[in-house]
Simulated scan of single mutants.
Amino acid sequence: MAKSNFLQDFKAFAMRGNVIDMAVGIIIGAAFGKIVSAIVSDVIMPLVGLLVGGINFTDLKILLKPEEIVDGVEKAAVYLNYGVFMQAVLDFLVIALSIFFCIKMISKFNKKQEEAPAAPPAPSKEEVLLGEIRDLLKEQNQKEK
């Protein structure tokens, strides 16, 4: 009995609109992140590299400790890979800028929808009554003529 209640509760939770919307958002966000990362690494960074003298940022590093051989065992060199960090910062900035522009366009679109002329409000009871009086007076004036 408890198992079926658990399954029913879980199904109700998983099928709520917010959970599904969030899942779709995460999936689209991950795909969007891949697209932006590809644009940054394959389009923007080569251009930036050309502007600064043909430098590939991901190759920028500082040698902290050179390669050495101790007792016949080779120890790898230790590098500070600051170029990878610069690449990650640039990825973040491009993603943030892209999201900013998307949100700005959505806001602009929503604002245009809000500015669309609304249907005129229904006349108040007083306006309806005054309209009826006006129509009656017109009828009486036409009958007298």
Rank of each mutant, 00 (worst) to 15 (best):
L50I: 05
C102S: 15
V43S: 14
F100C: 09
G54P: 04
M105E: 13
L80K: 06
E68Y: 02
L90F: 15
V78W: 08
V89L: 09
L47G: 07
L64W: 00
I69T: 00
V89A: 07
V43Q: 10
D42N: 05
A96D: 11
I103N: 14
Y79C: 06
F101W: 14
G72P: 02
F92T: 13
V89D: 03
K61C: 05
V89C: 04
I55M: 13
A88R: 00
I62K: 10
L90Q: 10
A88V: 05
K108I: 09
V84T: 09
I55F: 08
V48P: 06
S37K: 05
Q87F: 02
V70A: 12
K61I: 02
A88E: 01
L51K: 01
M45T: 14
V78T: 13
V52Q: 01
Q113Y: 02
V94M: 15
D71P: 08
M105L: 15
K111F: 07
G53T: 01
K104W: 14
N110W: 02
N56M: 07
L93S: 10
E74P: 00
Q113A: 06
L64F: 04
V84C: 03
E67K: 00
I69G: 01
V52P: 05
D91I: 12
V78P: 00
L97F: 15
V73N: 08
E74C: 03
E74M: 07
V84F: 00
C102A: 15
N56E: 12
V52I: 09
N81C: 07
V48K: 12
E68G: 01
K111C: 01
K75G: 06
A96W: 13
S37Y: 00
S37G: 12
A96H: 07
D42Y: 01
V78H: 07
V89S: 02
E115P: 03
Y79W: 12
V84H: 01
S107V: 07
L93T: 12
S107F: 10
S98T: 15
D71T: 10
V48Q: 09
E115K: 11
L60E: 04
M86T: 06
V48C: 11
E115W: 06
F85L: 12
A96G: 09
I39H: 00
E74Q: 09
G72F: 03
I99M: 14
S41K: 07
G83D: 06
D91P: 04
S37I: 00
M45H: 08
A77M: 07
N81I: 04
L51S: 11
D59A: 14
F92K: 10
I35K: 00
D71G: 13
L64N: 03
F100G: 10
D59Q: 14
K61G: 13
I106M: 14
